[in-house]
Design a protein around this nucleic acid. Structure first.
Lengths: 145, 145
DNA sequence: CCTTGCTGTAAGAGTTACTGTTACAGCAAG
DNA sequence: CTTGCTGTAACAGTAACTCTTACAGCAAGG
């Protein structure tokens, strides 16, 4: 049950933007962020598009275009990012419909949905405790990988 | 960040085995389980192989071969199943190494690892609260899907 | 022994999702 | 109008998973 790295890329971008903001610059380009993440600018733009839809960043077009944090890093939580990039649940139910002639096949999906919902809610509670500012602080406090 | 359904299949199999056990039968075949899950017996055998390695089920070979719950449903938690089938973390870090010349690229991975570890621990705590017997009860209490 | 029925596992096809990349139209500041 | 960056489509490459077929291995019971 592996996961993609969209969450990681989005947090990386926001953390980088928060650092740059602290240093006095506000508008940054996808190219600059891509350099820090070491990926293609289009990947970053796709990620920032999700964050823009969630209201976490704003974009400016035309000459001198680029991205800006919509809120201070202290008020953006990991949960905000999770909500912005995650569409699918952490745990998947059966791919195909189980045998409805069997009592287990008939009733297990709602039962599992409840369990999975509780587990996912626990994740959300945990992610809500951490802000981009926290991640930035921890990131700068780290010396090595 | 979708997830595969290995967890769901494994829980389905165990729940079905618990029901059958309550009805007096102990040894079941992958073919019978596959009928309830509505999939191929090999998929079930692969899943049960994980559960066997985790000590949750035992297998018998030869004629009259089949699978048996190693413990009562009351003492098998969703966390046990999670541990048996999950090798990868819920949240993935960067696919490629971020730019080490950048302070964010250098320090963000350990920072994220901590956050992700806390979130995953929250999931484990939640899954530890639910047993196969609980799932069986909820499943049988459900009338429709 | 030897038949029988199921497990264990390899191998391959089909599907899906994501990443990385190229390409190009659109936009607005100056 | 020039310029630089965004927005997005399109496509290739990769990886994981499910499903299926195929077949060797094993042990209980005759």
């Amino acid at each position: 049950m592996s996961a993609n790295s969209r969450m990681t890329v989005a947090v990386h971008a926001l953390t980088w933007m928060a650092l740059v903001h602290d240093r006095g610059r506000d508008v940054v380009t996808s190219d600059q962020i891509a350099t820090s993440v070491a990926t293609n600018p289009v990947v970053i733009r796709r990620s920032l598009a999700d964050l823009r839809e969630a209201g976490l960043v704003t974009v400016r077009h035309g000459a001198g275009a680029g991205w800006t944090l919509a809120r201070a890093g202290e008020s953006i939580t990991m949960l905000d990012v999770f909500r912005a990039v995650h569409d699918e649940p952490l745990f998947a139910l059966h791919r195909g419909e189980p045998n409805q002639a069997c009592p287990i096949g008939r009733g297990i999906r709602p039962a599992l949905r409840d369990v999975y919902a509780d587990a996912e809610e626990a994740v959300r509670r945990e992610l809500a405790k951490v802000t981009i500012a926290d991640v930035l602080r921890d990131t700068l406090a780290t010396r090595s990988d």
